[in-house]
């Protein structure tokens, strides 16, 4: 008896593999997703550490060097006030990505909260889902424009021009984009509730709070992760669209959308200037979308291992 257990423990002994390694293996096999991941990481690291390494200040005005084309000193040229476009792109990317990620995080928190509550507690389901439907029927872009226009001055006075608009932008994008996440999470929670392990956990007297944090949330993590990638893309595009319509951050505070908006005035003379911010926005969103695509495949156990 003891011999048998000893041999079976010895023979195919392999360290138990974390399931996230399987996900990573599957993710690696998706070429587009891998490429997107590399591009996105390059952009994130570039805008994080770039401004520390690059020797120009994005707000430094050198009026003698204005409207220059690309050169070794200014790889992307300079703008109409002689500010280095490369430095402005780097610090603009910081703001754009920060807005994108914070807004995404906010919308995920709200969406997951609403979705879990609606799926788990039957009494709240009707009310919460009707609210979600109502939010889906709101005209989002016009409403965002109205909110930003009306509340900008008040918040700028309280938190400073940059801080105020940052808070406003993030919360406005966050509270208008949580609905899809909430719907997906609710659907998954409803299906999870019928599973045996939930019944088992309930039968040993697990309270609702621990039930949700220990058993439900980890199992709805994959749809949340996928909608996180879509959320970043959506938030970055929305922020740039608002900046492009002139309702974003103040002019001396560069973001990619703002840079694009400013360059449009010089379209006739310096058409190459609109390319950089536009390319940065599109490349970021494209890479995030491809990552989401790969992540969806990697997190689906039916596809994994094929």
């Amino acid at each position: 008896m003891t011999e048998v257990t000893a041999t079976s423990a010895d023979a195919p002994k392999k360290a138990p593999r974390n399931q996230w390694w399987d996900v990573w293996d599957q993710f690696k096999s998706h070429k587009g997703a891998m490429l997107g991941f590399v591009v996105f990481m390059t952009i994130v690291l570039g805008v994080l550490f770039g401004p520390m390494l690059w020797h120009f200040d994005p707000t430094f005005i050198d009026i003698r060097a204005r409207n220059q084309g690309p050169s070794w000193a200014h790889p992307m040229g300079t703008d109409q006030l002689g500010r280095d476009t490369f430095a402005r792109m780097l610090s603009g990317g910081r703001v754009s990505l920060a807005v994108g990620m914070t807004a995404m995080a906010l919308s995920l928190v709200v969406g997951t909260f609403v979705g879990v509550l609606a799926g788990y507690f039957k009494r709240l389901d009707g009310l919460l889902m009707r609210t979600t439907d109502l939010f889906l029927a709101l005209p989002l872009l016009p409403l965002l424009l109205v909110i930003i226009m009306l509340f900008r001055d008040k918040l700028s006075a309280t938190f400073g021009p940059e801080g105020g608009i940052f808070i406003l932008m993030v919360s406005a994008i966050g509270i208008t984009s949580w609905m899809q996440t909430a719907r997906i999470v609710r659907g998954d929670v409803l299906a999870l509730k019928e599973r045996e392990f939930v019944l088992a956990a309930r039968s040993i007297g697990t309270p609702n709070r621990r039930m949700i944090t220990r058993h439900v949330l980890p199992n709805v993590l994959s749809p949340i992760l996928v909608s996180a990638t879509l959320g970043i893309a959506n938030a970055i595009i929305t922020e740039s669209a608002l900046s492009f319509l002139g309702l974003g951050f103040p002019p001396d505070f560069p973001t990619w959308g703002r840079l694009l908006f400013d360059s449009v005035d010089y379209l006739q003379q310096y058409p190459e200037r609109v390319i950089w911010p536009g390319l940065a926005i599109s490349l970021t969103v494209l890479s995030v979308n491809y990552m989401g695509d790969g992540l969806r495949d990697a997190l689906d156990p039916r596809i994994r291992g094929r």
């Binding site: 595009i237 599109s282 494209l286």
Partner: peptide, 17 residues
């Protein structure tokens, strides 16, 4: 994917250029 990722304010400006 390009249609999803390139926002109209860039594709529009790009075709103008």
């Amino acid at each position: 994917m390009i249609g999803f990722s390139v926002p109209p304010f860039f594709s529009g400006v790009l075709v103008i250029v």
